[in-house]
Amino acid sequence: MTIARERAFEELRNLVGEYSAELGNIHIVIDDYERNVEKFHVNDKIHKKVAQLEAISGLLLQEVLDANQLLDDIESSLDDHGATKIKVNQLIRLLAEGPNRVAGAEALEHEIQKYLEKDIKNND
């Protein structure tokens, strides 16, 4: 493998690592909601939205695992140009969904905040 390819592969591995770490932040947020959801005023809509957020986090987690698996596959197929090309495109396609899911999680998070605030104002 040439130096350029080695560097490109290392860059790919680092980037997927960072990607995984940042998706981990979403899990922290969701864990925070899970911990607090018991403290929140009983509200079915909030529970529903938190469940949706959890579902998104599950998908993201699965994508991170799949991305790491694809990286291993790419490494083992580097000598086979055609196979590498397929795996790299699979990886890019997979990770391209990530930002959309993050945006969905962000929208859900805003909705949960909105419900909570509305609930507080109703009780004030």
């Binding site: 390819r5 490109a8 790919l12 980037l15 590498t84 790299v88 990886l91 890019i92």
Partner: peptide, 10 residues
């Protein structure tokens, strides 16, 4: 950056 690295690799 992943796309760029991927293309370089390919």
């Amino acid at each position: 950056r992943i796309r760029t690295a991927g293309r370089t690799l390919i």
